[in-house]
């Protein structure tokens, strides 16, 4: 059982993430968008979306820091376990809380604003369940870990396992020894990774950092080749009407 959960599932998730992203990039450029809903509603979005996204940036940085950098390294530069945890818990807790409040506002907005709810697809709903699940369980694991003392040190259980995945020798035993909250959070995280390429979340992969460097005016020749994965000409639109809302 442990082997399936911690030795096989992570690879399945990674394969779907990579394979799915490549597939989507090649075949669905037209669907690759944030699907912004600001046209419908702006007031709540202007609070919720930045709160969520900026919180999330810190959370992601924190995850990388906690999972990738081995404990021995931080100890080698003289950071004790207590200091590390104090910082991780305060910064991570605040960031996690912002993310949670942000997404709560976003979900409330999705449900309660008529046009936004109309524009929410089944795909979005599934994505929100997994995303909210991952965030809530993550906060829960953090809090539970903080109160549990030494046993809650994920840097001795989850992190070695995480790194071991990438050297293709999954350290199933250490993950199996992790506390339950961490295990559940990790599983939802894997689910999120697996569905990521098939949802609107792909917009994160095309975060437009190159905007900082490109020239303002873009000239392009009429005979420029289509972008890789440009959609073949097909009907990319629906007729006007209220009926098409049913779909």
């Amino acid at each position: 059982m442990s082997v399936v959960l911690w030795g096989v599932l992570p690879y399945l998730a990674i394969v779907t993430l990579v394979g799915g992203t490549i597939w989507r990039y090649r075949y669905d450029q037209f669907g690759w968008t944030t699907r912004s809903s600001q046209l419908y509603e702006s007031r709540l979005l202007r609070i919720g979306s930045p709160l969520f996204h900026f919180g999330l940036v810190f959370v992601i940085v924190g995850h990388i820091g906690g999972l990738v950098i081995p404990m021995s390294w931080t100890e080698a530069v003289g950071i004790t376990q207590e200091q590390y945890h104090a910082v991780a818990l305060s910064v991570g807790g605040v960031a996690g809380f912002c993310t949670l409040v942000g997404i709560a506002i976003l979900v409330y907005r999705r449900r309660r604003t008529g046009p936004v709810f109309m524009a929410t697809t089944k795909n979005d709903k599934l994505m929100y369940v997994v995303l909210v699940g991952a965030i809530v369980l993550g906060l829960w694991a953090t809090l539970a870990g903080a109160t549990a003392g030494h046993e809650g040190n994920y840097r001795e259980t989850v992190s070695p396992w995480f790194r071991s995945i990438f050297v293709l020798q999954p350290d199933v035993a250490s993950m199996a020894a992790a506390p339950l909250p961490f295990q559940i959070h990790t599983l939802t995280g894997l689910a999120l990774i697996a569905i990521f390429p098939f949802t609107r979340l792909v917009h994160a992969f095309t975060a437009p950092l190159h905007y900082l460097f490109r020239p303002y005016i873009v000239y392009r020749s009429r005979d420029a080749r289509p972008t890789p994965g440009a959609s073949a000409p097909r009907r990319g639109w629906d007729p006007v009407g209220t009926r098409d809302r049913d779909r």
């Binding site: 450029q29 037209f30 968008t33 944030t34 000239y219 392009r220 020749s221 972008t227 440009a230």
Partner: peptide, 20 residues
Amino acid sequence: YKRAEDGIVLVDQDRCRGWR
């Protein structure tokens, strides 16, 4: 982009990511 031949300004529907 602006077409180099005739200056018509177009949105590449495959590259637009909806940043609005």
